[in-house]
Amino acid sequence: MKYFEINYPYFAIIAANDEVECLEYYKKIIADDLDETEFHDSIESLERTTVINKLASTCGEDSHKVPIGIEEAKKQILESDRSNEPSILALDGSLV
């Protein structure tokens, strides 16, 4: 899997096989009225270690604003790799 950070119109970190799959998944799950030009301008490919560090500082849905930490971040990355399906690893807090 590859990892992508999107910042427009909503922040997300998505695991996908490629940028095309990432775009389709983002449109399906987050913003179906997406301006694709702006999407491509805001997408950034991330290295695995960068994703782990970013995820470690995010808060889980049920963690009461406590960061999930490195071990949980690694676990989420491994699960996304095993599934080989696109998945959202982090999402703009305004959408949760």
Results as ranks from 00 to 15, higher is better:
37 T>Y: 00
80 S>Y: 03
30 I>F: 06
29 I>R: 13
73 A>R: 12
61 E>P: 06
14 I>L: 03
80 S>G: 01
63 S>R: 12
89 L>P: 08
69 G>C: 12
54 K>S: 02
37 T>H: 00
46 L>C: 01
42 S>K: 10
49 T>C: 10
75 K>N: 11
72 E>A: 14
55 L>W: 11
53 N>V: 05
88 I>L: 14
79 E>P: 02
45 S>M: 11
81 D>M: 07
82 R>A: 13
39 F>K: 06
58 T>P: 00
13 I>L: 03
63 S>G: 11
80 S>D: 01
46 L>A: 03
28 K>I: 00
68 I>M: 09
39 F>Q: 06
34 L>P: 00
27 K>R: 15
29 I>W: 03
72 E>G: 07
60 G>W: 09
37 T>N: 00
19 E>H: 10
49 T>M: 11
83 S>E: 08
28 K>T: 00
32 D>F: 14
26 Y>K: 01
47 E>K: 13
75 K>H: 14
79 E>D: 12
38 E>M: 14
36 E>I: 09
69 G>W: 15
76 Q>A: 11
28 K>F: 08
61 E>S: 14
27 K>S: 02
39 F>P: 11
54 K>E: 01
57 S>M: 15
90 A>G: 06
73 A>C: 09
63 S>Y: 13
55 L>D: 05
53 N>F: 03
78 L>Y: 11
25 Y>W: 09
47 E>V: 13
19 E>N: 06
76 Q>R: 15
21 E>A: 10
17 N>H: 11
79 E>T: 14
35 D>C: 06
52 I>K: 06
45 S>Y: 12
59 C>L: 09
50 T>S: 09
27 K>E: 04
59 C>V: 15
80 S>V: 02
75 K>C: 10
68 I>S: 00
59 C>M: 14
85 E>G: 02
69 G>K: 15
86 P>L: 05
86 P>C: 03
67 P>F: 08
18 D>I: 04
13 I>F: 02
55 L>Q: 08
47 E>R: 10
85 E>K: 15
66 V>M: 13
30 I>R: 07
57 S>I: 09
26 Y>H: 03
65 K>P: 00
90 A>S: 05
29 I>P: 02
45 S>W: 10
49 T>S: 14
37 T>G: 02
57 S>E: 14
17 N>T: 09
40 H>E: 04
44 E>G: 04
35 D>I: 11
70 I>V: 13
16 A>E: 05
23 L>N: 01
39 F>G: 09
81 D>E: 08
15 A>C: 11
14 I>F: 02
87 S>G: 10
79 E>C: 12
41 D>N: 08
82 R>P: 02
28 K>S: 01
89 L>W: 07
18 D>P: 04
24 E>C: 05
55 L>H: 11
73 A>Y: 08
58 T>A: 02
